[in-house]
Amino acid sequence: MTQSQIYITALLIFLAVIIPRALPFLLFPEGKEPPKFIKKLSTTLPYAVIGSLVVYCFKDVSVTDYPHGIPELIALACLVGVHIWRKNTLISMATGTIVYMLLVQLVFVA
């Protein structure tokens, strides 16, 4: 790629990043009454989207290849356990992350 082609590519990526984010707000502006189905979705869609994002976090885990998702499973179990026990996001998250880092760096070394 030439210098200018690099900049054009970067500019196109920028546009392709912005447009999907702006689209719903352009389609359903504040002034107008949004269609009924949008209101119905507001009580269900957020929870479903968060659920799918949790799955998204584990998308690169392979059950068939070493280490078979075991570090993820152990770290997740620790995180959920601590979260139910202490109900503090930061403590749960730090526990899960430290456990996971130790596992992938020291125990399950590829």
Binding site: C57, E72, L79, H83, T89, Y100
Partner: peptide, 18 residues
């Protein structure tokens, strides 16, 4: 290595809270 689990952890906690 593995620091990315911080965000996995955040999503999971929020999911549990919800």
């Amino acid at each position: 290595d593995g620091i990315g689990f911080a965000m996995t952890g955040m999503f999971t906690c929020i999911f549990l809270d919800q």
